[in-house]
């Protein structure tokens, strides 16, 4: 699941990056990357509340990749100002983004529902918990999600 991790200094700012691979359809592993991201952020000494929000958006998007794509990646970037999580998958893509963003809309199958998912809340939840959120998708190609959590909370989110 782990890819390369790197730490570099750019303009005097320390930047941490790590890439993770996510296997579509493998529900046994679903959530491993989010757990891993949580440990990394905790070890960096980032406040619990920010770690929790980052882990949550990572988990929701990881579950979506496992549920709706054949293969995907997640990239974690941390600098002193923000935590950025990007999720990229090679899946079916989202036909109607506006519809997918509506609470309650879901195309989840029985297998996903059996595990307690598929209520059509994930994307709304991701949006609620990130300071910046961008979703792009190409039908038949895949989906790209960018989620940013700022370290300095300008507009504190509800926990």
């Amino acid at each position: 699941m782990r890819g390369e991790s790197s730490e570099q200094v750019l303009n005097g700012q320390k930047i941490f990056e790590e890439l993770f691979i996510i296997e579509g359809g493998n529900f046994n592993k679903a959530g491993e990357v989010a757990s891993r991201i949580k440990v990394i952020l905790k070890n960096m000494g980032i406040p619990d509340e920010l770690v929790r929000r980052a882990a949550l958006v990572a988990y929701e998007s990881e579950i979506n990749i496992v549920s709706y794509a054949k293969q995907g990646y997640m990239k974690l970037t941390v600098n002193p100002d923000l935590i950025m999580i990007e999720s990229i998958d090679e899946g079916e893509g989202i036909v109607d983004i506006e519809l997918a963003m509506q609470e309650g809309y879901s195309t989840a199958n029985d297998r996903i529902r059996e595990m307690g998912f598929g209520a059509g809340m994930g994307l709304c939840n991701i949006k609620n918990y990130s300071d910046y959120f961008d979703l792009r998708s190409k039908i038949g190609k895949g989906t790209y999600l960018k989620m940013i959590i700022e370290s300095q909370q300008k507009n504190p989110k509800t926990e």
């Binding site: 679903a30 307690g116 809340m121 994930g122 926990e159």
Partner: peptide, 27 residues
Amino acid sequence: LMSDVLAYAKAGSLLLTGLTNPQVIRT
């Protein structure tokens, strides 16, 4: 419903559930 747990449950709370798959622990 783990989707609901993710949307509403707060840190430090007990989670009461009838589900027993590993995703409950991940959540």
